[in-house]
Computed example of a mutant assay.
Amino acid sequence: MSPALPAAVRRPARAGGSLARTRVAKAVAALLLVGLTTQVATSCSTLNGVRSPAGAREDAASAAGGAPVTPVDCRTATCVALTFDGGPSEPTPRLLDLLKREKVPATFFLQGEGHTRTYPATVRRMSEEGHEIGNHTWSHKNLTELTPDEVRAEIAPVQEDIRKATGRAPTLMRPPGGATNDEVSKIMKELGLAQILWSVTAKDFSTTDSALITKRVLDQTERDGIILLHERYAGTIPAVGRIITELRKQGYTFVTVSQLLAPARPEPGAVYRP
Rank of each mutant, 00 (worst) to 15 (best):
L5V: 06
A8P: 06
R10H: 06
R10D: 11
R23F: 14
K26W: 12
A30D: 15
L33F: 08
T38P: 02
C44Y: 10
N48P: 07
V50R: 03
A61G: 09
G65C: 07
T78H: 01
C79I: 11
V80W: 00
L82T: 04
T83R: 05
D85G: 09
G86E: 14
S89L: 15
P93H: 07
L95D: 09
L95P: 09
L95A: 12
D97T: 10
A106R: 00
T107N: 01
L110T: 06
L110N: 15
L110M: 10
G112E: 05
E113F: 05
T116E: 10
R117E: 13
P120F: 11
R125T: 14
H131Q: 05
H136V: 09
S139W: 03
H140C: 06
L146N: 03
L146E: 09
T147D: 04
R152S: 13
E154P: 01
E154R: 06
P157S: 07
R163E: 15
R168Y: 05
R168N: 11
M173C: 12
R174I: 08
A179V: 14
I187R: 02
I187H: 04
E190M: 03
E190G: 04
L191Y: 03
L191N: 03
K203M: 14
F205V: 07
T208A: 13
D209E: 10
A211V: 07
V217E: 06
T221N: 10
E222N: 09
R223C: 01
G225M: 09
L228Y: 10
L229M: 14
H230F: 06
R232H: 04
P238V: 10
K249C: 04
T256K: 01
